[in-house]
Design a protein around this nucleic acid. Structure first.
Lengths: 124, 124
DNA sequence: ATAACACATGAACAATCGTTCACATGTTCA
DNA sequence: TGAACATGTGAACGATTGTTCATGTGTTAT
């Protein structure tokens, strides 16, 4: 935080705008939680897990094999996904099966893909 | 990477599944880029900037005032957003105005918000 | 009860990230 | 040209993150 924030010369014109924009901002805590949610998507290992779960529910061991990673590493990442309520799990004997918990995952990843593939064609 | 990946006992049943899931996985590089994209959303400062740009194009100085942050910090974050092609900019004299570059931003943030607010009601 | 297995978790380390500070770039106006 | 202003950028520091290693928990079968 800064005590004295420098301001540009159009000050009076922009003051109104800044206030309007400020009022439109969602609650601080909500924005923080939102950032936390996207952090979860911000790792290729976790994205690979999510794409795997697009196809079917999968157990931890199979995920480890699929990703070529330690079971421990996968388990740690699954916990992150679980905390964000992006995956659900079901126990069957010794095995735990994970699945997608939420339809938003597909939309979010789909929109991300679109953005990547269109790269600067679209203007809003 | 691991040489000897441990595997669960249902091996033969799951082998087929693992192969099917593997084939469905998007290209490794694409998944990496996708993760990079979500990392950009994974910071509350950048999200606040994006929500500000929902309302109007805004200059760097006003963003700094709105966020209560250094102009430098804002500028650094704007570069991240610019590199991800999430914002566009327009120069007018000394002032630079930033705006949203892409409609996907609204969808992605909207879906994230929905996910946060529904928290575990929906099952896919 | 004991062994074997699937999975979870805590500590620790390297790597990455966000902010700050100092300074550079580019534009306007006298 | 030179001063003033808005913005951009490189280096550096503390904080966060992902993986590994060792170990803990919970289940099954003997």
């Amino acid at each position: 935080m800064i005590g004295e924030t420098p301001r540009c010369e159009y000050l009076h014109a922009h003051d109104e705008l800044v206030e309007r924009v400020r009022r439109a901002q969602p609650d601080e805590d909500l924005l923080y939680d939102l950032a936390e949610l996207y952090k979860v998507f911000g790792d290729s290992t976790r994205i690979r897990i999510l794409y795997a779960l697009f196809e079917s529910e999968v157990c931890v061991c199979d995920l480890a094999q699929l990703l070529g990673m330690t079971q421990s590493a996968v388990s740690h990442q699954l916990r992150v996904l679980k905390n964000a309520k992006l995956v659900a799990y079901r126990r069957e004997g010794k095995t735990v099966f994970y699945s997608l918990a939420d339809g938003h995952v597909r939309t979010i990843l789909g929109q991300g893909m679109e953005h990547l593939c269109e790269e600067g064609e679209e203007r809003i």
